[in-house]
Design a protein around this nucleic acid. Sequence first.
DNA 1: TTCCATTTGCGTACATGGTACCTGAATGGT
DNA 2: ACCATTCAGGTACCATGTACGCAAATGGAA
Lengths: 247, 247
Amino acid sequence: MADEEATSIWMQPEGHERSGPGRRPGYSREQITRTAVRIADAEGVEAATMRRIAGELGTGAMSLYRYVPRRDDLFDLMIDLAMSEIELPDGPSGDWRGDLTLLARQTRAAGLRHPWLIALLTSRPTLGPHLLRVHEFALSAFNGTGLDIDDITGFAGMLNDYVHSAIRREIGWLEEARRTGLDPERWKRDYMGPYVRQVVESGAFPLFNRSVLDSRTAHLAPEERFRHGLDRILDAIAALIPSLRPR
Amino acid sequence: MADEEATSIWMQPEGHERSGPGRRPGYSREQITRTAVRIADAEGVEAATMRRIAGELGTGAMSLYRYVPRRDDLFDLMIDLAMSEIELPDGPSGDWRGDLTLLARQTRAAGLRHPWLIALLTSRPTLGPHLLRVHEFALSAFNGTGLDIDDITGFAGMLNDYVHSAIRREIGWLEEARRTGLDPERWKRDYMGPYVRQVVESGAFPLFNRSVLDSRTAHLAPEERFRHGLDRILDAIAALIPSLRPR
DNA sequence: TTCCATTTGCGTACATGGTACCTGAATGGT
DNA sequence: ACCATTCAGGTACCATGTACGCAAATGGAA
């Protein structure tokens, strides 16, 4: 065994598929990661403890450390497994708006399937292969619009920011309710509700009040809301790209 | 004592300044929160444990629970204390772009002073009074542009998303380095560096490569980079507001 | 002044988490 | 048949949030 140098998980191969002597590994990174994802989907990341994952696999907690150096690295693996579900064509179609819409919807779907994904993604700087693949596709959609690489990166970031924060809005307080143990309806009514009502009735923040009370989009289906916001971002981008502004 | 109903921290007054019988409180929420913020600024949120905060105040961990129901509520208080440092005029000046630029710079300053702020803010749905004040100012800057409340909310969100993710970019891997215990230079060189180099040299992601290698803005000072991105967002917003597009 | 209901201070204790270390079992080349 | 090598996983340690309970302080009532 080498120095166990501290480095990114993506630089440390699993090590098996070697033919020398020694006991055969009984598990695999992928198997462990899938188990962790399944638990996190159902009960939140905080339920996916080393002991719990190992228990689900019918082994002891310490066995996992033969496959994953630290729990944080397992998070990276979970993120990349979730990102791998984002299905995209090999390259851009030429219709930049269609490509980015597809990307956004796929990302939203993955974010809803794995309610922990966006939170983890936001909390740690990770660059797994599937994240790179998805990112590359986003950048490539802008290729051929005459933008330089800094503008491409900037616009792709703008879109990414929107998608992430829209997903957070959609699942944010649902997750918070689960974390605190209350069912969502009770949480909204008893936990956050009274305070928001007090703030609204105080009249101290009139525009906030209007955004709570007078919103028309608030009553749309979540998917339509997402689409509306997305279209606005894409409009904004289009308005700033000279080669796309033929008016 | 009442039912100890589970509700937002903002609905539970501190309770002191009562004149009945009973021992006088020796501490205060504000004092506790300030201590927590000081520790988190210097050593990260994970260092601001209940025991540590209490120790810093010269008392026992359990004493804090007379002032704060749960550790998560203390996070809400920390967030709002940090947000209170964002200095803004009482109302919009009429120059929407100037107002939003001021807001963005103040937010960036707070985010750099308190490297944990954006992460906490993103990870939990909180609505403290100072956050509401800041949010109301953002909304008010758009008032008078002829937008309806949904568009105002949307554009304010767009700006907010940019500011937050720009701050995250600026401090993101610095914080990660601190978390893992390595000094930043070592982290970049030994931890993430080798992997990024391998990805770049593989040539698998050409546009990612260009964004890493060919970027011109990458060599700007952080503040200028922030300003560039901000201007682009504001341009995008301006392009979509009919009453601001006299061209 | 003397009590006593009330409120704070905080030590003890427990459950839960990551993970270092170590022993024993399995494995395939010599 | 032996042995270096690798995996399985039990035990143990330390850190964390926090429930519980009792002692100390406090001010109004008697």
